[in-house]
Computed example of a mutant assay.
Amino acid sequence: MQRLIPAMLIIAALIHLIPVTGVLGGSHLAQLYGVRIDEPNLLILMQHRAVMFGVFGLLLIAAALIPAYRPLAFVAGLVSVTSFLVVAWSVGNYNLSLGRVMIADLAATACLLTALAADYWPSRFSTA
């Protein structure tokens, strides 16, 4: 039980850290999302997005190690993943690469919800 919450947070963190490579440029973003980013303003926005995912990932790692950070990490992480899922579903017609991002975000959502439940209702997750 004591390892469940940190493990779920670390998995969610790793999912959030994958897009950080996008900060290295358009070719990395194209690999991640299956779209070419030729317009400089869009490149700036997407690279900034990559940095923000790094911040979320680091927050989730910190929360795995420091329980006081968990409430903030749960909220930030769940807003991050569920907002992407809602936007993608509402727009639709996304490519295969974004479909994989959706699967990763569904996995991160499951990890975060499991950690949240274990943190707030530990008696339901204990094996004793």
Rank of each mutant, 00 (worst) to 15 (best):
2 Q>V: 15
37 I>R: 08
53 F>D: 11
71 P>Y: 02
74 F>D: 00
97 S>D: 09
95 N>E: 09
6 P>M: 12
51 V>D: 05
103 I>C: 06
74 F>A: 02
21 T>G: 00
106 L>P: 00
46 M>R: 14
3 R>M: 14
83 S>H: 10
63 A>S: 05
15 I>Y: 07
73 A>H: 02
48 H>W: 04
30 A>Q: 11
116 L>T: 07
44 I>N: 09
49 R>T: 12
119 D>E: 06
45 L>P: 02
121 W>Q: 13
84 F>E: 00
71 P>F: 04
36 R>W: 10
114 T>R: 04
3 R>D: 12
113 L>Y: 01
103 I>A: 14
111 C>A: 15
16 H>M: 05
127 T>Y: 10
122 P>K: 00
24 L>T: 02
51 V>Y: 07
22 G>P: 01
55 V>E: 03
92 G>R: 13
57 G>A: 12
87 V>Y: 15
35 V>Q: 10
57 G>Q: 13
45 L>C: 11
44 I>P: 02
18 I>K: 03
100 R>D: 11
46 M>K: 10
61 I>G: 07
55 V>G: 10
100 R>A: 13
104 A>S: 11
105 D>V: 02
52 M>S: 04
49 R>E: 09
83 S>F: 14
66 I>Q: 09
106 L>C: 11
93 N>G: 14
83 S>D: 09
5 I>G: 11
76 A>M: 13
87 V>R: 14
34 G>E: 06
83 S>L: 13
88 A>S: 15
105 D>L: 02
88 A>H: 12
104 A>I: 04
124 R>M: 08
46 M>P: 05
115 A>L: 02
53 F>R: 05
114 T>F: 03
108 A>N: 07
109 T>G: 05
37 I>K: 06
40 P>I: 11
21 T>H: 04
106 L>F: 12
83 S>V: 15
58 L>Y: 01
64 A>K: 09
120 Y>M: 08
10 I>M: 06
120 Y>I: 14
8 M>R: 13
73 A>Q: 00
35 V>K: 11
105 D>S: 08
21 T>M: 07
5 I>A: 07
101 V>F: 02
127 T>G: 03
82 T>C: 14
107 A>L: 15
18 I>T: 05
4 L>S: 13
15 I>Q: 06
78 L>M: 14
117 A>T: 11
62 A>Y: 01
62 A>R: 04
11 I>R: 01
75 V>M: 05
1 M>R: 14
84 F>C: 03
14 L>S: 07
81 V>M: 12
118 A>I: 09
128 A>Q: 11
110 A>L: 12
115 A>Q: 10
79 V>Y: 10
103 I>D: 03
53 F>P: 03
84 F>A: 05
59 L>F: 04
68 A>R: 15
69 Y>M: 15
96 L>N: 07
99 G>C: 14
44 I>G: 08
79 V>W: 10
98 L>E: 04
58 L>F: 10
106 L>V: 13
56 F>P: 03
25 G>L: 04
3 R>F: 12
47 Q>V: 01
68 A>E: 12
77 G>V: 06
77 G>P: 10
75 V>R: 01
107 A>V: 15
120 Y>A: 06
1 M>V: 15
76 A>T: 02
19 P>N: 02
